[in-house]
C-alpha cells in the first residue's frame, strides 16, 4: 500500500485492497452503530459497540496508523468495554430501557434531528472532498510509525503529554473517591455485646422461635410461634403483652 502511495508522493486514490476493505467494513461499522442505539438490551449494545470499535481499528490500520489501531483494540475494545460490562453487571443486566417516552415526540424529533444533522454533515463534506488529493504518510512514517509518534509526543507535545498524565492520575483518584463506601466501623459483635444490647435496648432476650413450629412450648426461654407469624410472649398466656418491665420487650414480638 505504501508503495502505491509514495509512488507519486501524492495520494489521489487508495489501493484496490483498501477500497475493498473499506466498502466491506464501512457498512458493518454503520450497522453496528445503528444496532447499538436500537437494541433494548444494554449488553447487546456493548457487544455491537465492540464490533464498531474493531471496524474503526481496521480503518486506522488501513490509514497507516498502526500504533493507533492497536491502541484502539487494546484500550477501547479491551479495557474500556470490559469496564462498561463490569458496570452493566453491577447495575443489573435486566435494567433494560423503558419504552415510555417522558417527553412526547422525543423519538420522532431525534430521528428528524439525526437525519438533518447527517445531511448537514455529509453533503458539504461530500462536495468538498470531490477530487481532493492528500500527501500520504509515507515520508512521515519513515523509520516506523511508533517511533515517529513517540518523537512528536516527547518533543513538540511534551507539555500536553504531561498534562494528560496528570489528568489520568486525577481521574484514578477521583474514581477511588467516588467509588469508596464507608463501611460500618468496628469488627464483629460478640455474644457478650449482643446480650448487653438485648437487655439495655429492651429487645427480645431469649432466642426467637424457630420457623415452622407452632406453639408447642410457650415459656420465657422457648417462645411459641403464633399462626399469624409473630411469637408468644413466653409467660404462659398466648396473648399477654401487659407484663413487667423486664418482659415488656418480649411482648413486642407479637406485632411482627
Amino acid at each position: 500500500m505504501s508503495t502505491v502511495l509514495s509512488a507519486a508522493g501524492e495520494l489521489t486514490s487508495t489501493s484496490t485492497g483498501e477500497a475493498v476493505t473499506f466498502w466491506i467494513l464501512a457498512p458493518v461499522a454503520v450497522l453496528a452503530a445503528l444496532g447499538m442505539i436500537l437494541v433494548r438490551s444494554a449488553v447487546h449494545s456493548a457487544l455491537l459497540l465492540v464490533a464498531n470499535l474493531f471496524c474503526v481499528a481496521v480503518f486506522y490500520l488501513l490509514q497507516q496508523a498502526p500504533f493507533l489501531g492497536f491502541v484502539q483494540i487494546i484500550v477501547y475494545a479491551g479495557a474500556i468495554m470490559v469496564l462498561f460490562l463490569f458496570v452493566l453487571m453491577l447495575v443489573g443486566v435486566d435494567s433494560s430501557d423503558s419504552l415510555v417516552e417522558t417527553i412526547r415526540g422525543q423519538r420522532l424529533g431525534a430521528v428528524i434531528f439525526g437525519l438533518g444533522f447527517a445531511g448537514l454533515l455529509v453533503f458539504p463534506i461530500g462536495s468538498a472532498i470531490d477530487g481532493v488529493h492528500g500527501n500520504g504518510l509515507a515520508t512521515a512514517n519513515t523509520g516506523g510509525n511508533v517511533q515517529a509518534i513517540g518523537r512528536l509526543l516527547f518533543s513538540q507535545y511534551v507539555f500536553v503529554f504531561e498534562a494528560v498524565s496528570a489528568l489520568l492520575v486525577v481521574a484514578a483518584i477521583g474514581t477511588m473517591v467516588l467509588g469508596h463506601r464507608e463501611r460500618d466501623a468496628g469488627g464483629p459483635v460478640g455474644q457478650r455485646e449482643w446480650m448487653r444490647r438485648r437487655f439495655t435496648e429492651g429487645r427480645q432476650v431469649t432466642p426467637l422461635p424457630g420457623p415452622g413450629v407452632f406453639a408447642r412450648h410457650d415459656s420465657a426461654d422457648t417462645l411459641g410461634l403464633l399462626p399469624g407469624g409473630g411469637h408468644a410472649s413466653g409467660i404462659g398466656g398466648i396473648e399477654g403483652s401487659d407484663d413487667g418491665p423486664a418482659l415488656a420487650g418480649a411482648g413486642k414480638g407479637d406485632e411482627q
Partner: peptide, 27 residues
C-alpha cells in the same frame, strides 16, 4: 476510492452517536 471517504463515514458515525444520546434512557 477517494481517501476522504473516511470523513463521510466518520460523520455518519458521529450522527448515530448523537441520536443515541438523544434517544436512549439508560445512562
Amino acid at each position: 476510492m477517494n481517501p476522504a471517504n473516511y470523513l463521510i463515514l466518520a460523520a455518519l458515525l458521529f450522527t448515530i452517536g448523537t441520536a443515541g444520546v438523544l434517544v436512549r434512557r439508560n445512562a
